[in-house]
């Protein structure tokens, strides 16, 4: 029988188990006992893994400044005022604890120490979600459908600018093959709720700010009208006439370069198959001071 203990000022974790290899490495857990906040949590490996996942996940959210409730399997962690309420259900019954930040840290720390200890349960590691790039990669095999879908995107973007006088087509040349996308007859509704708009604005700022990493090559502020759907995904964008004026003769060249330099095109292409019901349009300025403005 092997025993290992991990201790922080307000929490103690004791694990008992067996080794199936020679070098004193604990590979089988028979029981763990964790004392924290005046209570005792005990159980087997399954509960230990659930507890590790729950505490780790919750602490990661806390690091990002959010304290969202965690509830998965046998572990529930809820923020309550300035404390955190843990409810752990096991075969031995239910344990409820109220922890403050310090005790929560101490609990996380003993579990992290266990996870990082190669001599004890090497298969129990700190559970982190898979890292994902701040913007998803663009699928390079899409050019065939870009043509059709960019029509849709531009149609959506233009829906928000004054409608020019309609011109009746005298002939209807249709030499192109049948479009796989039915003609978009549904006109999306604009989002008007101020709270929803504020959230979309903030999300759009974060999205573009994270994705804008290329070195700036433009020398005048570039302003675009950017349309997003109700989930904040960019579905269309269009530079403003003022931007074209500011760029003068270079407009075409610079704007073409910007489809590479700025993240708008890449982000839009990820959403080209969307048919949103509700949309909102914001004015986005990439300033020469490298500031990003979303209004």
């Amino acid at each position: 029988m092997l025993q290992r203990s991990y201790i922080t000022p307000s929490c103690a974790l004791l694990v008992e188990g067996l080794s199936t290899v020679d070098d004193q490495q604990m590979t089988l857990l028979t029981r763990f006992i964790c004392q924290v906040g005046g209570k005792e949590i005990s159980g087997g490996k399954e509960l230990l893994i659930y507890l590790t996942q729950g505490v780790s996940h919750f602490c990661q959210r806390l690091l990002s400044g959010e304290g969202a409730e965690y509830h998965h399997d046998q572990v529930k962690i809820t923020p309550q005022g300035q404390r955190y309420h843990l409810r752990i259900t096991s075969e031995d019954g239910e344990v409820e604890l109220d922890l403050d930040r310090i005790q929560l840290f101490d609990l996380m720390e003993v579990l992290d120490q266990l996870c990082l200890d190669a001599q004890t349960l090497p298969d129990v590691v700190i559970p982190f979600p898979a890292l994902r790039p701040p913007t998803s990669p663009v699928n390079p095999a899409v050019p065939a459908v870009v043509g059709i879908t960019s029509v849709l995107a531009i149609a959506l973007a233009l829906w928000f600018v004054p409608i020019p006088e309609p011109k009746r087509e005298e002939t209807v040349p249709a030499p192109t093959p049948v479009s796989p996308v039915p003609a978009p007859v549904l006109v999306p509704k604009p989002i008007t709720d101020p709270a929803e708009l504020a959230k979309l604005r903030s999300d759009l700022f974060t999205l573009l700010d994270r994705a804008w990493v290329n070195t700036r090559t433009f020398t005048v502020p570039l302003t675009y009208k950017v349309t997003v759907d109700e989930r904040g995904r960019i579905i269309g964008y269009q530079e403003t006439p003022e931007t074209r004026e500011r760029l003068g003769e270079e407009a075409e060249e610079v704007l073409a370069r910007m489809t590479e330099e700025l993240p708008l095109e890449t982000l839009k292409q990820q959403n080209q198959d969307l048919k949103p019901d509700r949309v909102a349009t914001f004015t986005v300025t990439f300033d020469i001071t490298n500031q990003l403005l979303v209004e």
Binding site: S64, R101, F105, M108, L116, I126, F128, P134, R210
Partner: peptide
């Protein structure tokens, strides 16, 4: 405080990538 523990480096790194998750 939360990154001053044993797993601090990993925790900070993942929180920097957060928002992508």
């Amino acid at each position: 405080f939360f990154i001053s523990g044993s797993g601090g480096e990993q925790r900070l790194w993942h929180s920097l990538m957060d928002g992508a998750v």
